Computed example of a mutant assay.
Amino acid sequence: MTRTLLYTAALLLALGAAAFFAAPNEVRYFVTTGLDSVRDAALGPRLPERDPRPATDWSQSLIDSARTQIGVTTTYDPAYVGLSYPMGDIDRRKGVCTDVIIRALRDSHQIDLQERVHCDIAANFARYPDLWGLTKPDRNIDHRRVPNLRRYFERIGADLAPPTLQSDFQPGDVVTWMISAGRPHIGVVSEFTTRDGARPLIIHNAGLGTRMDDFLPLYTLTGHYRLEPHI
């Protein structure tokens, strides 16, 4: 009886492992980060094991401001909300991926993407993506959409080609991905790397609140930006 139970347990474990590794990246990411959250709640957050990479003062301030959102923004909420203008925001306990960048720039350098993106779209409406059926700018939401941020960063000259090596992304760089059709994503490169130093950890919110984790290789990269000194 005991041997049968052991065989059954081993089979279930093997099937579970096979299903995990065969699952889409998004499923594996949420399972792994969910387990990490349980572990951190019980034992406290783990500190990176490698020394941080050097960053410019401007980039370090951006990174630090993004990291302060960890533990504050704990949920992902894509609901459309009317905002004050300028410097409008929703409750910082919730947000989407773009809010990580928006809030970090405001807190570190008093740069308001809501105002800057709105002004540029108002003056150059036809040059921005036509994905939402709009006929005029919407200052409540335009700056919170990844395609619009990508276009704005391109227009100010901040876009770069992705580096050959993932380790060559610099602290403070902004990166975009396509998680699935119609679901773009954005995050900021931190000064910390994976344990082997192969690539930087990313500060972002993909659905579990703002986190810093090994997200860079999970999805197709769509953009690479270095905001300093262009913004």
Rank of each mutant, 00 (worst) to 15 (best):
M1N: 13
T2S: 09
L5H: 04
L6N: 10
L6S: 11
T8K: 12
A9E: 02
A10M: 14
L11D: 03
L13T: 13
A17F: 08
A23P: 00
P24F: 03
V27D: 03
Y29T: 01
T33A: 10
T33Y: 04
T33V: 11
G34W: 01
G34S: 03
L35K: 13
D36M: 13
S37Y: 03
S37D: 13
V38K: 07
D40I: 02
D40M: 01
P54T: 06
P54F: 08
A55C: 01
D57V: 15
D57P: 04
W58C: 06
S59C: 09
S59Y: 01
S61R: 15
D64I: 06
S65L: 02
S65Y: 03
A66L: 03
G71E: 09
G71M: 08
T73D: 04
P78E: 09
A79S: 14
Y80F: 14
V81A: 14
V81F: 14
Y85W: 08
Y85N: 02
M87Q: 11
M87K: 12
M87V: 09
G95Q: 05
T98E: 03
V100P: 07
R103C: 06
L105E: 02
S108C: 08
S108L: 07
H118K: 04
C119F: 15
C119T: 14
R127V: 09
N140E: 04
D142W: 05
R145S: 02
V146Q: 00
R150P: 01
R151P: 00
F153V: 10
G157C: 12
A158Q: 02
L160P: 03
P163E: 07
Q166R: 13
S167T: 12
D168L: 01
D168P: 05
D168Q: 11
V174Y: 00
I179T: 06
H185L: 13
I186C: 05
S190E: 03
S190I: 00
F192P: 07
A198G: 10
P200M: 04
L201Y: 05
L201G: 09
I203D: 14
G207R: 02
G209N: 02
M212E: 12
D213V: 10
D213S: 14
D214R: 06
F215I: 07
G223H: 01
L227S: 10
P229H: 11
H230N: 12
